[in-house]
Design a protein around this nucleic acid. Structure first.
Lengths: 113, 113
DNA sequence: TTCATTGTTAGGCATATACCTAACTAATCA
DNA sequence: TGATTAGTTAGGTATATGCCTAACAATGAA
């Protein structure tokens, strides 16, 4: 049962890098192997693997190894946790605007009396 | 006009820390001064100011100083950029599921033929 | 069984991050 | 004017991050 503060740290941290966002974007189109994922990037493979590790540790990606090939998959559930944190902030914000709006409307009604 | 990769780096980076998320959550309820924002945290003020700086540089927070008091405000527009990146990934993912679903349905129709 | 492919581990380096204390400026209050 | 409040700047430390090369499995193909 995730969605604690520590998880969010790792999820947002994982998203804070263009390489990792690109990998995740690729994986939302479907699973892929490590070397397929690495291909578009110019960095050395061990460097790339570190990015994958960050993604896995955040829960945004899982992988399993068959033979010598590791296949990675996006975990949308984890991405959703991040999205929900943001959505909650928006809800609070909009609640505030609603109250402001209600206040302004209450002023108008008062004027009409 | 923003929403380039570099901006997203900074936004997600800013969100990847519990102190900064707490500050932002506080600010979605309305503006607050630096020392009000700092009060709940045990860290030294200069440390806290660094977090504020990260939030400002990401565009998630703006501030203005009047007299000796600096007042901070959340910028939901910036938060929305992060939300939209995630939403886009979800759309791709769900598109994939839709196609899978369509494929499965096409198989069923084939079976019926 | 030898070779190529696919990934992994170890270790090093430069910069960034997250914290601190000390000392400072600028505005307001008594 | 002198003290207090609000914030800032400077500079130091420890750890984390993002990259690298070199060397090492382990699997699969010839």
């Amino acid at each position: 049962m995730p969605n604690n503060e520590h998880d969010l740290d790792n999820v947002f941290q994982a998203l804070a890098d263009p390489t990792r966002r690109a990998v995740l974007a690729r994986l939302t189109e479907g699973p892929a192997t490590v070397s397929d994922l690495a291909k578009p990037f110019e960095m050395a493979l061990p460097s790339f693997l570190q990015h994958l590790k960050v993604l896995e540790e955040s829960g945004l990606v899982t992988s399993k190894k068959e033979g010598r090939v590791r296949t990675c998959e996006a975990q949308m559930k984890t991405l959703t946790e991040a999205e929900e944190w943001i959505a909650h902030q928006r809800a609070v914000w909009e609640g505030r605007l609603d109250r402001l709006d209600a206040y302004l409307r209450s002023l108008q009604s008062t004027e009409k009396e």
